[in-house]
Nucleic acid binder design. Structure first.
Length: 155
RNA sequence: UAAGUGGGUUGGACAAUCGCGUGGUGUUUUUGUGACAGCACGAGGAAAGUCCGGGCACCACAGAGCAAGAUGCCAGCUAACGGCUGGGCGGCGUGAGCCGACGGAAAGUGCAGCAGAAAGUAAACCGCCGAUGGAUGGUUUUGACCAUCACAGGUAAGGGUGAAAUGGUGCGGUAAGAGCGCACCGCGCAGCGGGUAACCGUCUGUGGCAAGGUAAACCCCAUCUGGUGCAAGACCAAAUAGGAAAACACGCGCCUUCGGGCGCAAGGUGUGGCUCGCUCCUUGUUUUCGGGUAGGUUGCUAGAGGCUUGUAGUGAUGCAAGUCGUAGAUGAAUGAUUGUCACCCUGAAAAGGGACAGAACCCGGCUUAUAGACCCACUUGAUGA
RNA sequence: GCCGAAAUAGCACAACUGGUAGUGCAACUGAUUUGUAAUCAGUAGGUUGGGGGUUCAAGUCCCUCUUUCGGCA
């Protein structure tokens, strides 16, 4: 119950902040994104090519043995996820679906540390041979990396 | 019981927590493509490859000709098919069964390396022969006979090479030979019988036997195919550029009741091979305000649907009745974690592992991938009664 | 999703109308040189992407699978 109330407070706070900080006219979506509630609404996704290009234009790269993240601060109180999974690297549709679902699941469970960032997830060749648990662990590892860099950027 | 053949079914179940998409319900909100609550539903037998066939949409409700392509024993099924079912023929297998682009070479053109005498219409060459004719010699009863030559000729048996060489075997026959004659086998044609037909025959007659291969070479014959594809198409509509629609007049000729009508010429547009045909249009004035990119909405899922029973049929399938039944995303949902149970595999145990694979307008097929599990029918062998 | 193109030696490419798979570079051996390069002479290297079919004979014709590349918003 406590967490819910705090989240509401945060949401209200973001509501008040949002119109000032927002410069993109495209982002007029709902701003009551609950960071603690582990849900995954449409507002937290990158949807249009414009948004993707915006991330790619001025981005920081965080790489791992399995994943590659492209990160950019989005001036929003919540994170947004974009998936760029190449057919060249994962030719089978089943493989691509599994990687996408894993990425969404991991993102959904760790939204709070990522708040204020747009993240585009890229893949590596040969990912289909790695099991789910190690992929999730390496995803978390990258999230911690981003958290540390977050403090640096704040300064 | 072992090996096998054909066909079919299935492609783990349940629960908890956290999530996602769509639909409709309620509450909230100025509105909503928002939020919240709870409900329902949410990948496959191949969803795959995109190899065929349709539906649907637009372009003439789809036209003509040429080109191009596809199919190809017969009959049926079907919306249609290159699919399926049944039958015929040929091949493989002891068998259950399996495989087959399986029309035409007597319309024409072309092709066949090397080897071989010769590779296509019938001959030449090497051979064989010396009956008949001829030359020479001998014998002679002066009728002729014998020998030699290989000149005219007669042959196509033999040439062992090739993937392929102009019916096969045997006997007769002959100078040597030859379907030259005969017997059997094979083949063609006609009749008869069976079959809807393809085709078949212990049938009858007839022909001495013609017509080599290749059409997944060109080609001929028969049948079929218009093009583009949901990124089709329809609607709303920021931006940007200036035009768009309607009415009237309008190039040349003819007619005219002076309103107009008909024909001709040139160019463009759409039908994505070409020609024709068809559609809309060409330049000026007036009036009206539309047109359309980004983006969005729609098309978007109930359909040649599944299952059961009955019935017609050998069968594919048809008909009738009953019953079941909401996937519709669009940077793209259908998931993650945990637990219990069941089956199988590895392992002494602990434990570990569980096939191929993900809808994108929708159907019917084909092809390809697939851990296993189960069911039915049949064949062959062994053993026992 | 839809539509198309290609695959030949280590690499880049040929091979006509089915009839012995070649060319250049690279590799190896020898000669030349004190030695190397260059040059000259020679050699080897191919399941023609896999499988099946037609044919006497398939890189070529037909079917199917695999891989790679491209176009359409």
């Amino acid at each position: 119950m406590d967490s819910a109330s705090t989240s509401e407070q945060q949401a209200e706070a973001s509501k008040s902040d949002a119109p000032v900080s927002l410069k993109d006219e495209t982002v007029e979506l709902a701003l009551e994104v609950c960071l603690d509630c582990q849900d995954f609404p449409k507002a937290t996704r990158l949807l249009s090519p414009k948004e993707f290009q915006h991330v790619f234009a001025n981005a920081k790269k965080f790489a791992n043995r399995h994943w590659t993240f492209i990160v950019r601060a989005n001036e929003l109180p919540y994170p947004r996820l974009g998936l760029a999974i190449a057919k060249k690297q994962l030719p089978k549709a089943v493989w691509r679906n599994r990687i996408k679902r894993l990425a969404r699941e991991s993102f959904r469970q760790h939204k709070q540390p990522l708040a204020g960032y747009d993240i585009v997830v890229l893949t590596r060749r040969g990912m289909e041979q790695v099991d789910n648990q190690t992929l999730v662990n390496s995803f978390r590892h990258l999230i911690r990396k981003i958290e540390r860099s977050n403090t640096k950027e704040a300064k």
